[in-house]
């Protein structure tokens, strides 16, 4: 009983990770649904979000020294809040350029999109190395959000609860957009049948741009919120695209709740395996990917999810 209770903080850790993974997966899924292409660079957009957040919070911005000094004097709480809001906005143009590059692949074999976005992911990772170097960074978290507290004789990390709360707010936002707006209905209809939406007078090219921007901002947002937990390093993009991939395989394409449940599942696996040995938490994710793909290759990117069977 005592040991089970000890797992509780790891469970919370898993839920937090899972919610953030779900956010990455939702953007990945929206893009996959409407463009019918897998965006392997999705994780790089996530990584850019984390690096931009670092630049805003640290602060390491390309600004005149006196302006930078003024910004550095602003309390960290405000700088962190600014990062949460601004980093996704700053990453959005990268998504716009990527979407423009991907246009040639729409309606073609998904292999074209895979190769293109793989190339873009490599370029973005190298760009990150050029600008920020290969070292790891820690995103500073405001004092109010960091540290830990004791509950049930266990030590809990405060920031994980903040991260979970931020993720839940963003998930609720995505849900509202997808389920409650005309834009969401256009996205769903366009993913199902791209011809009919155009024949109804909807500009599919523009719709795709907006969906790409939304997916990019969700990835960047997850990058900001996950950065204090994961640390910031050039390779973090790949570590983020794997759970997204896994969640889509588990939860199916085009299902909000499939992504949410799949996210929690993957987060739990990572969180709980981290309870035993932290070096296993990432590896467990890759092992899960191999297992799922081996056992369920048929269900890959099918409309039906593994969870529904």
């Amino acid at each position: 009983m005592g040991t089970l209770l000890n797992l509780l903080p790891h469970l919370v850790n898993g839920i937090t990770l899972g919610l953030l993974f779900a956010l990455i997966a939702l953007g990945f899924m929206l893009i996959l649904g409407l463009m019918e292409q897998i965006n392997l660079a999705h994780g790089s957009l996530f990584a850019l979000g984390a690096y931009f957040a670092y630049a805003i919070c640290a602060p390491r911005l390309p600004l005149p020294p006196d302006v930078l000094g003024m910004w550095a004097a602003v309390p960290l709480g405000w700088r962190f809040a600014a990062a949460v809001v601004l980093a996704p906005i700053l990453v959005a143009p990268f998504g716009l350029v990527l979407e423009r590059l991907m246009r040639r692949t729409y309606g073609r074999d998904p292999l074209y999109g895979l190769l293109l976005t793989f190339g873009v992911a490599m370029v973005l990772e190298e760009l990150i190395r050029m600008v920020w170097g290969t070292r790891d960074y820690i995103l500073p978290v405001p004092r109010e959000m960091s540290g830990g507290f004791i509950m049930l004789d266990l030590i809990w990390s405060t920031y994980r609860f903040w991260a979970a709360a931020l993720a839940i707010v963003a998930m609720a936002g995505v849900w509202a957009i997808v389920e409650r707006t005309r834009f969401g209905a256009m996205v769903k209809a366009g993913a199902h049948d791209s011809e009919i939406v155009q024949a109804l007078g909807i500009d599919l090219t523009r719709l795709r741009v907006w969906v790409f921007v939304l997916g990019t901002m969700l990835a960047a947002f997850a990058g900001v919120v996950l950065a204090p937990l994961w640390g910031i390093r050039p390779h973090m993009g790949v570590d983020a695209v794997v759970p997204a991939f896994l969640i889509i395989v588990l939860g199916g394409v085009g299902s909000f709740w499939g992504a949410a449940i799949g996210g929690l599942l993957v987060g739990m696996v990572v969180g709980l395996s981290g309870a035993y040995a932290s070096e296993w938490s990432m590896l467990s994710m890759y092992l899960l990917l191999i297992a799922v793909v081996t056992l369920r290759a048929r269900g890959l990117f099918g409309k039906k999810s593994v969870l529904e069977v």
Binding site: R182, A185, M186, K188, A189, H192, D193, E195, I196, V197, Q198, A199, L200, G201, I202, D203, L204, G254
Partner: peptide, 29 residues
Amino acid sequence: HEIARAGIGWVPDDRRLCPTLTVAKNLSL
């Protein structure tokens, strides 16, 4: 989409509704 906006409506032989959307949302599209 410009042809549609010029005022040409289409009722396809297989109807092509979005199956997971409600009738109200299909209509609003």
